[in-house]
Design a protein around this nucleic acid. Sequence first.
DNA 1: ACTTTTGTTAACTATTTGGTTAAACTATTT
DNA 2: AAATAGTTTAACCAAATAGTTAACAAAAGT
Lengths: 202, 202
Amino acid sequence: MENKTENNETKILIAAKNCFQKKGMAGARMQEIADEAGINKALLHYYYRSKQLLFEAVFNQAFKIIGPKLGEVLNANLPLFEKIQVFTQNYIGFVIAHPYLPSFIIHELNQNPKFAKQLTQDERFPEISIFKKQVEDAVSQGIIRPISAEQLFINIISITVFPFVGAPLLKGFTKLTDEAYNLLLEQRKTAVAEFIINAIKI
Amino acid sequence: MENKTENNETKILIAAKNCFQKKGMAGARMQEIADEAGINKALLHYYYRSKQLLFEAVFNQAFKIIGPKLGEVLNANLPLFEKIQVFTQNYIGFVIAHPYLPSFIIHELNQNPKFAKQLTQDERFPEISIFKKQVEDAVSQGIIRPISAEQLFINIISITVFPFVGAPLLKGFTKLTDEAYNLLLEQRKTAVAEFIINAIKI
DNA sequence: ACTTTTGTTAACTATTTGGTTAAACTATTT
DNA sequence: AAATAGTTTAACCAAATAGTTAACAAAAGT
């Protein structure tokens, strides 16, 4: 067993992930990451030379997880409605398990547009072309109402991700307790696909 | 004319708004705010004692703008479908004019949950109870499919706001240029309401 | 006129913070 | 066991940064 005691390199990465995701690049402190990893601050610099590089390691790892997760379903060989069901269910489940991840990615991408361009060109970056064709076919066959694949895709992602990103705000508006709100998120695993399919189905 | 030369207090607030919205509380620098306002850094502290207080002034002002804007339509005396149309159109238009605002509010609220609680109790904080009743009535009258007002509200906000918050990400996915993406946002002013109404209408 | 209050600045201070160094410690090789 | 390479730490360092001070200027009272 190799992870009897996690090695420092991964302990650092885990601690850094937590700190960066909670506080963002600008708000996170190297000392805090070191403390959370239970090691000396100099060791951070030993493994990852600078804050910037440590941040990029965390960010890339985050994207390596979430990117393929998205592409996987989008490019699967499934009928459109089923695909929407699987996608939203999978994805909401995934985000429930990693609640800080979307806000983190979005915030840092907003801070650093160059970073965004770079990501787009990564080979792991999800492709929507298959999904796009599928939507266009469904429209021309009269199965769904006319809508561009881009608009539909944006609607799906929005309705899936935003309830996590905007949780504090939405909890405020709806005056729900944390438990009630989490229950509601859980229900969305199936409710969201239903909503979207109703919106496009003829 | 009183704003011949804007007074320093508001010049500071404007500069601070820009910096905080672009870089967040943690990323913004007092010196940068002073430079952008064209004044000495000490003057920031003269008017707003600390970075924290300046930040709160900016944040509260931001919420003072966006909060009532939301409540206004939600509590208006309009039939449900029309309300959805007016709300999405108004709100998308508003966010086009203030594109950094939602990300800013969301990020800072995620950083500081106490802040969120405090806001909820503010009298300016929008109420959804009228909207809630309206949705419940529409459901029981069989006008719309069964859905909780909270879920519908979350869907509306998500689909309205997320395309702005997640713009860099969504631009990446859809491979659209900035212009194409902006055009698409413009189209959403009407398309979004249609989508939502189709989703719930029986 | 002069006194007081308000506004403004340059220079300074204290602290935080990312990053370095040199030494100590540990495992691995020879 | 000695040498070597890899790992870890305490103590530092330099730059950045929020905040202060003291002097000065302008405006407002008197």
